[in-house]
Every structure is written in C-alpha cells, then in structure tokens.
Amino acid sequence: MPKVLYDTICTLTELRYFVFHGNFYADGAEAYQMEFWIRHIDGSRFKSDAERQKVIQFS
C-alpha cells in the first residue's frame, strides 16, 4: 500500500498537481479505494474534460 500511495502522489506532482486532502481505505496490505482532492499547482481546477481524463488515466 505505501508504494502505491507514494507512486500516485509522485505522478500527480509530475503532472503539476498538489493534493490538499486525501483518504484511503485499506484492509491490511490491500487498498480498496484511494481518493484525492487535487488542484493544479497554480491553484486552478481542471480546465477541460480532457485534462480531467488525463489525470484519471495516469493516477
């Protein structure tokens, strides 16, 4: 679980987003769900549906 969480945060950072809140649900070493509230590094939200899909695809 820690590796997946770390990789996800690193990927979002590389895409120039920051996580300002997050939750994850796990049972032992198995993660069932991770959710993140993110913003672009400049503070803006998604500018298009294509941008939203890109972040979903890489996360």
Rank of each mutant, 00 (worst) to 15 (best):
R45N: 03
F20E: 12
G28K: 07
S44V: 05
D49V: 13
F36I: 14
Y6S: 08
I38W: 04
F18S: 07
S44H: 08
Q57N: 08
A26D: 12
L12Q: 09
Y25P: 02
H21A: 15
T13F: 01
E35I: 14
A29S: 14
Q57K: 05
I41Q: 13
V55C: 05
M34W: 10
F18T: 09
T8I: 12
F24N: 04
F46K: 05
V19S: 06
R39P: 00
Y17S: 03
E30W: 11
G22F: 12
T13Q: 05
T13I: 03
R16W: 03
W37D: 11
A26L: 12
H40C: 10
I56G: 03
G28A: 13
T13A: 11
K47W: 05
P2I: 11
I41V: 14
T13Y: 02
T11P: 03
Y32F: 15
A31W: 02
M1V: 13
A26W: 06
K54C: 01
D49F: 10
I41A: 11
S59W: 03
T8W: 01
A50N: 03
A31Q: 05
G43R: 05
E14N: 11
A50F: 06
Q33F: 02
Y17Q: 06
L5D: 01
M34S: 11
F18K: 11
W37L: 13
I9D: 00
K47Q: 12
G28Q: 09
V55S: 02
M34R: 05
Q57H: 09
R39M: 08
Q33N: 15
Y17R: 06
E14T: 10
Y32P: 01
A31C: 13
C10D: 08
I56A: 09
E14R: 13
G43Y: 07
Q53F: 06
Y17C: 09
L15F: 02
R45V: 00
F58A: 13
E35M: 14
E35H: 13
S59I: 10
D49A: 04
A26G: 15
S44W: 01
W37E: 09
F46C: 06
R45A: 02
A26R: 15
D42C: 04
M1K: 07
A26E: 14
F20Y: 15
F36D: 03
T11D: 07
V4R: 10
L5T: 02
I56L: 13
Y32L: 09
I38D: 03
S59A: 15
A29R: 04
F24L: 12
G22I: 12
C10M: 08
N23M: 15
